[in-house]
Each structure stands twice: as C-alpha cells, then as structure tokens.
Design a protein around this nucleic acid. Structure first.
Length: 620
DNA sequence: ATAGGGTTAG
C-alpha cells in the first residue's frame, strides 16, 4: 500500500486524538522526507514532545541540516523546549548556546525554563543573572521569565531573594500577572510565609484555577489543613470548576487527617468531573483508602484504572502495607514485576517493611539482591528500609553492613541502626553509634538511646543522657515512660517514683503504672498501694487506674480495700469494659466473646480444644 | 515559539 507522506503528515498534525497514529509512521516520515515548510517542523516538534519520541536528536539533526536553526529563532526555541520536556536540560542548553545569532527573549526564557523545570535551579539563576547584567544582552525579563526564577529560588530556599524578586515584579508591572503570582504564592507557602501568600492572593484583581490551587495545595503541603479546606470551600463558592490538581490537593488533606467520609465526598466529586485522563487522581484515591484501611476500595480503584503508572503501583502497595496486609503487598509487588513495570526506590521502601514485618529474611534478601541488580543502591529511603529489614529479621550484622556501605545517611538511618541495637539489647553498640552520629539527634534518636540503656540495664549512662536531654530537648511522654521504665526495671524504686511524679504532666498516670508493675515485681506492695491511691485520684474517669489500684491492693492482701474500691467504682459509674474479640464461623455470622465466658452452647468443647492447645504450647 | 499548581516512602 502506498502512502502519500504529505497527507499523512497533515493527518498527524491535525489528528484530534494524537495516539491514533503510531509513532513509527511519524519516525518513518522524519527519516524519508525533507519537510519543506517550517510550520510542519514545529508541529512535529510539539507532537514529538507529547509522544515522548525517544530520539529527539534525529529531529535536531533535521532542523540543523535544513538550516532552520539559523534561519528561524522560533525553531530554535521549539527545539530547546523539546529537549526540556524530554528531561534533557544539557541538550537544551547546548542548543541555546549554539545559536548563530544572539538569542532573543523567547530562547532565553525557554533555556531558563529548561533548567528550572529539570531540577537545576542554581543554573537557571545563573542564566537569569546573565540575562540581567550582561552588557551585550539588551533584553528585559518578562512574565514568562519570572515564574521560572521564582520557582528556582523557592527550590533553593532563598527567602531573601524571593522578596527582592517580589519587589521587581511590582517595578515590572507584573504584580497582577496570574502566572507570576501563583509561582509567588507557591514559593511563599513552601518557605513558610503563609501571610505573604495571603497578601499576594488578596491583592489579585483576577484569579484563575491555578492560583486557587496554589493556595489550597500549598496550605495542604505545609500541614495547615483547616486553611487548605477554607480556600477549597471559598474556591467552590466563587464558582471555580476544580481541576485535577484541586482534587489531588484536597484529597491529600483528607488523607492526612484520615477523614474517610470527607475523602469519599471528594471522590464522588471527582467522578462527576471525570478523571479518565489523569492517573494522579486514582493514585491519591488509592492513597486515601489505603491510609484509612479501606483496602477493598483502594483495590477497586486500582483494578478499574485503564493505565497504571509507577505512582499507581506504589500507592496500592503502600495501601496494603499500611493496613498491615504484608502478604497482599508482596503479592501485588509480584504482579507489578510480571506486568513489566520497573520498581523504583519508593516501591522498595514500601516492600522491604513487608519483609521485615513478616520477618521474612529470605524475601528480604531477594529484595536486597533486586535492589543491587536494578542499581537502586544510593537511595537513602531504600537503604534505610533495608537496614530496618535486616535488623527486624534478626540479622544485626547484615544491617550494620548495609548501614556502613550507604553513601548517604540521614537522621533516620542513624535512628534505625541505634534502634536495632536497642531492641537487641546491645546497649554499648547503640551508645557507640550515638557518639559517632554526625547529625544533630532528634526525639526519636534520644528515645532509641534511652531504650537501648533500658534494655541493656545501663542505668547510669541512661540517666546521664536523660538529664542532659531534659535540659536541651522537649521531651515527650514516651521519653518519660522509657526513663521510668528503665529505672524501675533496675529496681531503683525511689528514683522511679521521683521520675513518675515529674512525668505526670507529660504522660499522666502512665509512668505510675510502670512503677507499680515494678513494685509488684519486687514484692514492694506498700509502695504499689501508695502509688495506686495516687493514680486513682489522677484519672477518675478511666477504669484503667482503678483496676491497677484494685490489683495492687489484691497483691498486698488488702481485700477489704479491694471491695471498697470496687464499690466506689460502681458509685462513680466507672465500668471496666471487658476486652472483646470475635470470630466469623463459616458464614453463620459473627460471634463475639469475652475472657472466661461460658455463654456459648458449645462452651465445653471450645475449652477442651483451648486446653489442648495450651498444653501443646507449654509442651514445646 | 517561551511561563504557574497535584499524587507514592522510614
């Protein structure tokens, strides 16, 4: 069949559904024909960018040999933009620099954009400074330049520079430009200056969807959820149709707040808009349902997706992992591999904990080998997950080996390794590592160190560290608990009581409970009873303290006090709610039961089996 | 011809 190339080209260019024409034809065309008209070239370039044609160099060569790059500044700009969209900033820059005539503002902007949108903010700024200060360049940055520069400065965290650019925007008459302003709003929120964002937003005479989204999503990302919701509601009231970006942004708010119902409302909303073309929306829905332990809903979304990107796969694996279904997480990981999707470090960071939780060392080793094969070795997240996996699977040596070989370590790396030593009772090693740590410790580090001392019985060292911490860090209830626990276990009951009293403000009666348990352990019933009285006074509404106190009296043989306490509990309306469990038996409904009950018609048989099991457990 | 916003992880 013979095909008229010109007709085919026009078809490519005009085609409403770009994917309807195979890439191969486009490629073949490029190879066979010298396209005569420039507009065809440019349209091809645009199509190429949206189709991810693997070899832009071919197009580059065609433009070059056709003499278009020197004849047409527009072709030059398009080529820079093409390389930028294909994530080749170096190529984009070399086209810019190879311009035979001094580049115009279009070319400058395209080059700056190529750098800023490909994570090279410092280089983007460098080019911007040349644009402004090179005496041979007589161009003035415009509304296309500023958004890129604002984003670059924000990426670098240069707050002071952002203020200067903001002033420059006013001077340039661009203070009402929605593009520059949404970049500004975004930058201010990312850098922690919400009041400046609000100011920029309030002073805009006209707003568009992106500007609204910047407020909603910016607040969402800095964890100011009520503000994000506020702007979302205002946006709706103002009659703006939300875009896919709005949906994912506001969904992340409900996900972080674990607000399943709120999330479902947005889901319904997203269905109304129709989100077939945007994978990010189902991805964040999977995330929502995963975090809210609604894995069936997550799975349903996943199954109905026409196209699954890496995010999608990662989201569903994390969803099951988060809900504690490690087997299913590993199962889907296998499915992903069979589908030919290449996992990244995020996938592995989600899969490795599944191996650790299942204490599946064999699987974990496989995952490690997989990481090595796929060259995912330098990633901090994956490395951390790997260290944690080996530690949780009991292989402390392997954990330390991986830790030592990590090219970059963040605070979490150190925390995980210290924790690993702590949970294996290796106090000395934990302290050595703590001493070698070249990053400032955080609360988690200190908790790890403290628990290491506690588990290894290193009370002196632990106390010293704890006292230092009290002066320098804001301690949480967990720290106090850990410290009380440490001192109590060591039998230093006097000291433990002193600390439990000090910890009251941070963790209420919990410190006393650890103390009471230690007193019982050492037969110091008087102490236990005394503390129990105090505990009851502290949490009169909860039943936990009463039970603790009743137990303490019981141990001390003070049965009259036990009775009095029970009576008092009753009068005050405190009820001990028994822990309840349930089982679903062969489709005949759910049966609930509490400890020791004999209401079930087959009670006797059930307890027989139970005794048999208990016997077998103690037998081995 | 060139520009701004979102989703996955310990």
């Amino acid at each position: 069949m013979s095909v008229n190339p010109r007709l085919l080209t026009n078809q490519v260019i005009k085609s409403a559904a770009p994917s309807s024409l195979p890439l191969l034809s486009l490629h073949r065309l490029l190879r066979r024909r010298r396209l005569s008209s420039l507009s065809s070239h440019l349209s091809l370039l645009r199509r190429a960018a949206s189709h991810h044609i693997p070899n832009p160099h071919e197009i580059h060569a065609l433009l070059l040999t056709g003499g278009h790059l020197s004849a047409s500044p527009a072709a030059l700009t398009s080529l820079i933009s093409l390389y930028s969209k294909l994530s080749s900033p170096a190529d984009a820059l070399s086209v810019f620099h190879s311009s035979p005539t001094p580049p115009n503002l279009f070319a400058w902007n395209a080059a700056i954009s190529a750098l800023s949108s490909n994570s090279l903010p410092a280089d983007a700024l460098c080019l911007f400074r040349r644009l402004r200060s090179d005496p041979s360049v007589h161009l003035i940055p415009d509304g296309f330049t500023f958004p890129c520069i604002i984003r670059s400065l924000s990426d670098l965290g240069h707050a002071g520079e952002i203020r200067k650019i903001h002033a420059l925007l006013f001077k340039s008459g661009l203070d009402s430009d929605v593009f520059a302003s949404s970049a500004m709003v975004n930058a201010y929120l990312k850098m922690g200056f919400p009041e400046f964002s609000v100011q920029v937003f309030d002073e805009m005479p006209e707003r568009d969807v992106v500007l609204w989204n910047s407020m909603v999503n910016g607040f969402a990302q800095m964890g100011r959820f009520p503000n994000a919701k506020e702007y979302f509601n205002r946006m709706m009231k103002a009659g703006f149709a939300p875009s896919g970006f709005t949906v994912t942004g506001i969904l992340s708010v409900f996900t972080s707040m674990a607000d399943l119902n709120g999330g479902r409302r947005i889901h319904a909303f997203a269905l109304k808009i129709g989100y077939n073309s945007d994978a990010a929306i189902p991805n964040s829905l999977i995330d929502l349902y995963g975090k809210c332990h609604a894995t069936d809903d997550a799975r349903e979304i996943f199954d109905s997706m026409p196209v699954r990107d890496l995010f999608s796969w990662n989201s569903i694996i994390s969803a099951f992992e988060h809900s504690g279904d490690h087997t299913e997480a590993l199962e889907i990981f296998g499915e992903m591999l069979r589908a030919g999707v290449r996992p990244d470090s995020i996938t592995m960071a989600a899969v490795l904990p599944a191996c650790s939780q299942a204490a599946a060392l064999a699987h974990g080793r496989e995952a490690h080998a997989f990481l090595l094969r796929h060259g995912i070795t330098g990633d901090v997240f994956a490395g951390n997950a790997l260290v944690d996996m080996y530690a949780k699977c009991g292989s402390l040596k392997a954990a330390r080996l991986v830790f030592d070989e990590m090219p970059d370590r963040d605070r979490a790396s150190w925390n995980i390794m210290i924790d690993a030593y702590a949970s294996h009772g290796r106090g000395e090693d934990a302290l050595d590592l703590f001493a070698a740590m070249n990053l400032p410790p955080d609360e988690i580090t200190l908790l790890g160190v403290l628990s290491a001392c506690s588990h290894a019985g290193m009370v002196q060292a632990g106390m010293m560290i704890f006292e230092q911490m009290e002066e320098t860090t804001t301690l949480t209830a967990e720290h106090y608990l850990c410290a009380v626990d440490m001192v109590s276990r060591a039998g230093m009951l006097e000291k433990a009581a002193e600390m439990a009293a000090k910890a009251e403000r941070a963790c209420g009666a919990k410190g006393w409970r650890a103390y009471i348990a230690a007193c019982k352990e050492r037969g110091e019933m008087e102490r236990a009873v005394e503390a129990a009285g105090r505990v009851v006074g502290m949490e009169p509404e909860g039943s936990g303290a009463w039970v603790m106190a009743a137990n303490a009296y019981g141990w001390a043989g003070k049965y009259k006090e036990v009775e009095d306490l029970r009576g008092e509990m009753w009068r005050q309306g405190v009820r001990k709610v028994p822990g309840c469990s349930w089982v679903e038996v062969g489709g005949r409904g759910v049966q609930t039961f509490v400890t020791g009950e004999r209401r079930h018609p087959q009670s006797e048989a059930i307890y027989d089996v139970l005794c048999g099991l208990a016997g077998r457990i103690s037998g081995c």
